[in-house]
Design a protein around this nucleic acid. Structure first.
Length: 200
DNA sequence: GGCCAGGTGTAAA
DNA sequence: TTTACACATGGC
């Protein structure tokens, strides 16, 4: 009889792969800052390499207060390397302005924002919302991306909906670890991405 | 040159 | 509720 793997089995499998990073908190650059919001939108259907070019262009404008001073055309020019700039620029500016208007500072945003508030923002879907919550706000939210789906498929696990993937990944490790879930989710997702990079 | 990348919004069936 | 398509640059 075929026994299906649990999310904890896959987590432990990845732990045993000896992936090359020492501190999972550093895996998403400048996690816990507004920069994660920018990166999360820019990386949509885009390689992180291209996002890095844009982030580099945005040097000096990576805080909430400085970012909202940019005008749309200038932002488009700066984020050109990461593609879809005609839609990403206005969406990023609207999001940043909404954060500023609703929460005043990014620190308050980190503390108070809800997943639903993020999902109501144009340009923020489920993965982007979870990336912002997990890496930007250090909340206990697991991120599901193409790497995740690809890895699970190797184990014969497939779902139709994002939420089904998320629930599958969440339950097993949540029940096992019970505490420090944000760190576990960060480590889990980071390992999935690194594993894919090494095996592709 | 073709294909894909740490997706999302919209329109149409 | 599901499916199809546009969005755009850069790396391989």
């Amino acid at each position: 009889m075929l026994q299906e793997k649990t999310s904890l089995d896959i987590y432990n499998y990845l732990i045993n792969q000896d992936l090359l990073f020492t501190d999972e908190l550093l895996w998403w650059p400048n996690s816990g800052t507004f920069e994660v919001v920018i990166g999360a939108l820019l990386t949509q259907n885009t390689t992180w390499k291209n996002v890095e070019k844009s982030l580099s262009n945005l040097d000096g404008f990576l805080t909430l207060d400085s970012f909202i001073t940019l005008d749309e055309q200038r932002l488009k020019d700066m984020i050109k390397p990461s593609g879809f700039y005609n839609q990403k620029a206005p969406r990023l500016l609207a999001l940043a302005n909404n954060i500023h208007q609703e929460f005043i500072s990014f620190d308050v945003f980190k503390d108070k924002v809800s997943r639903q508030w993020l999902l109501n923002q144009k340009g923020v879907g489920e993965e982007t919302a979870d990336s912002i919550l997990c890496y930007g706000c250090f909340r206990d939210e697991m991120v599901v991306d193409t790497y995740t789906k690809r890895l699970l498929k190797k184990f014969g696990i497939e779902f139709k909906k994002y939420q089904d993937y998320k629930t599958f990944l969440d339950i097993g490790v949540r029940d096992h670890f019970k505490k420090n879930l944000n760190m576990i989710f960060i480590r889990y997702h980071a390992m999935i991405v690194e594993y894919n990079k090494l095996n592709s």
